[in-house]
Amino acid sequence: MNTKRPLPRPDEDSEVFWEGCRAEELRMQECSECHTLRFRPRPVCPECLSDQFKWTPVSGKGRVYTFGVVRSGVLPSFREEVPYVLALIDLEEGPRMTSRIVGCEPEAVEIGMSVRVLFEALDDTISLPYFCPQ
């Protein structure tokens, strides 16, 4: 069984996002027509269907929408890391993303908690945006 940690595979849509993470900057796409920020990266705005956008840095601040504590090695690649906290983070600017809460015990994590981004380098090209208590 492959126990190597799975890494993102940046593509045409996502490479700017992952380059940003590597540079320790959280970047989102902003629609040039209606100015809505969006995440998962894509070339078309889900609000107005404009295909014009720019990448813009966001604050990296947000709140925990909800979370779960992974206490069992469901994925072999992450077995050594349990327990860890997976969460949905609502960024101040609007978009929501999946991430991990680090820098505190799992028992300290609460819905609504203020968090900020930090980056963990996994190799020379990929850094993951994690979040920790603000």
Binding site: P6, D11, D13, T66, F67, V70, V74, S77, E81, L128
Partner: peptide, 27 residues
């Protein structure tokens, strides 16, 4: 690891359906 589900979920150690539903239950 593919686009879509995996690229922005699995690298964080997201095991899939169970985590999604556990997070929903928590909320």
């Amino acid at each position: 690891v593919d686009r879509g589900f995996d690229e922005f979920d699995r690298p964080f150690g997201h095991p899939g359906a169970i985590a999604v539903h556990a997070m929903a239950a928590q909320r």
